[in-house]
Design a protein around this nucleic acid. Structure first.
Length: 482
DNA sequence: TTTTGAGTTGTTCGA
DNA sequence: GTCGAACAACTCAAA
């Protein structure tokens, strides 16, 4: 027998802290039904394998959190509208609350849903809980969207000190009878082939894991962030990205904790804040330029001569077998842990787009499937940036040299040794360029190039020249103006 | 409307 | 070894 209650539809806000949708439902006073809807739909929204792994564990964590406060997480699968209609009918709910998403297809879907539900007389409210500044509310003086990070961040950062967060939800009124829930296991989000062994000791999906990561980060790393964040062998970054993506922690809470714990913000922490700013900027760009997951923001790149059909190069890159140690280390870290250090993301991205001249789009798709923090906004911005075709993109001549990047940011070779163990016994001078090592050194280290570790699949110096020429070829010239 | 200064994360070359 | 300049031209954002 249906009786009045409120539905809280959860998406990428899998937490109880700073949760305006829950807060609104609590304020309304009726029983609350938290629901997560799994859609098997394709398109940009289709879950990558690593993200599916994370989602499984995040939902498990949220489920127990809710049970601890006398509630429950209802799992349903299918098309959102249909599932919600069904649930409203079953429960007699008269209100639906949720936190909004900003990806193009979600904007359309939510708009549709909003008007449908309102038409039927339901109380509907949605909230911003995943961004500090909603894309619609930030614009230049002439009313256009920012396309350059620095002025964007300059214009909003004065408002950082006024950021607030809502207290954690401690209790939810339960309905007289719970609607049925599907079984999480039946969704088969976990891999059938166990490639996720390396994930478990690296990650703790869920809100508690997120808060722990933040706490850890604010204790030490944040004070050396400016330099340490560039060294992939160290834990110099926050590693909050997957937690943020799934909304296990809100950016508001991060900013607030930072201000509360540090008082006056040191320069290193300010750089960390600007990384939060890049996350905001990425969503802002995606919101205003919704075609960017498929198309370069800079139109001239539509005629960039990307290499097509490079199956062996592609395979070498994805499998960490390019013969460039820092690139291979990164790709293997990604495969093993579902994550890659940001410095190394730039290096492997530059290698794919400049050295192999394979489109940023292919790289983005690979990352989408393999990253636990895969996020349409950040992934798109990052890949277009490294490909040179996006917002505030790297200038064409900024082509990373995988050897000097390795020597600069992994000077001790620890990162390479960890992920490319077949090179572990090489000494520092050669760890980033084994092909230049003297024969005796290779022998002593047990390295046989082309057998135990690949010879470089491209000559970087030549590839660089070719990449520069390719950039030259898309330059707007007088002859193209007539 | 026009002008001006600036633009995440690099590399190479030559002095 | 270290340092500064060149590497294009364009577009953005503000004055």
């Amino acid at each position: 027998m249906p009786s009045d209650c409120s539905i809280v539809w959860l998406q990428r806000d899998l937490r109880l802290d700073d949760q305006p949708a829950f807060a609104a439902a609590v304020a309304r006073g009726q029983p609350v039904i938290p629901v997560f809807i799994h859609s098997g739909a394709g398109g940009n929204g289709a879950l990558g394998s690593a993200s599916a792994w994370w989602l499984h564990h995040s939902l498990t964590a949220l489920g127990s959190q809710l049970e601890n406060i006398g509630s429950r997480l209802i799992l349903r699968s299918g098309e959102t509208q249909t599932v919600l209609d069904q649930l409203i009918q079953e429960t007699g709910a008269t209100a639906v609350y949720w936190s909004r998403r900003y990806e193009p297809e979600h904007i359309v879907r939510e708009q549709h849903l909003l008007s449908k539900l309102r038409q039927r007389g339901l109380t509907v409210a949605r909230f911003n809980s995943s961004l500090l500044f909603e894309p619609g509310e930030v614009q230049t003086r002439t009313g256009t969207p920012y396309q350059v990070f620095t002025p964007f961040w300059k214009s909003v950062s004065p408002r950082l000190s006024a950021i607030s967060a809502q207290p954690e939800i401690k209790a939810l009124r339960r309905p007289a009878t719970w609607p049925a829930s599907e079984s999480l296991t039946a969704w088969q989000l976990l891999p059938s082939i166990p490639w996720d062994g390396g994930f478990y000791h690296r990650w703790t999906p869920g809100e508690a894991g997120a808060r722990q990561r933040l706490k850890q980060f604010l204790k030490n790393a944040v004070f050396q962030y400016a330099t340490d964040r560039n060294h992939p062998a160290q834990t110099g970054t926050s590693r909050l990205s997957p937690h943020l993506h799934f909304g296990e922690i809100s950016p508001h809470r991060i900013v607030l904790e930072l201000h509360q714990q540090l008082g006056v913000i040191p320069d290193d922490a300010r750089i960390f804040l600007s990384e939060i700013g890049w996350r905001e900027f990425a969503h802002h760009i995606l919101y205003h330029f919704p075609q960017t997951p498929q198309e370069p923001l800079r139109k001239v790149f539509q005629r960039f001569p990307w290499n097509q059909n490079q199956p062996s190069e592609w395979r070498a890159w994805t499998h960490g077998q390019t013969g460039y140690p820092i690139v291979d280390a990164g790709m293997r870290e990604l495969w093993t842990t579902g994550w890659m250090h940001n410095r190394v993301r730039m290096i492997v991205g530059s290698f794919l787009t400049k050295d192999l001249r394979i489109s940023w789009y292919e790289g983005a798709r690979w990352f989408w499937d393999t990253l636990v923090d895969a996020d349409l906004a950040s992934n798109t911005l990052g890949w277009q940036w490294v490909g040179g075709c996006g917002a505030d993109a790297a200038p064409y001549f900024r082509i990373f040299n995988p050897v000097s990047q390795g020597e600069k940011f992994d000077a001790t070779g620890d990162y390479v040794r960890r992920w490319v163990p077949e090179l572990a016994r090489l000494s520092n001078p050669w760890i980033h360029q084994p092909w230049n090592a003297p024969d005796w050194e290779l022998t002593q280290a047990g390295v046989r190039l082309g057998e135990t570790y690949p010879a470089p699949i491209v000559d970087h110096a030549k590839a660089r020249v070719a990449a520069l020429a390719a950039f030259q070829s898309i330059k707007v010239t007088d002859s193209q103006c007539d």
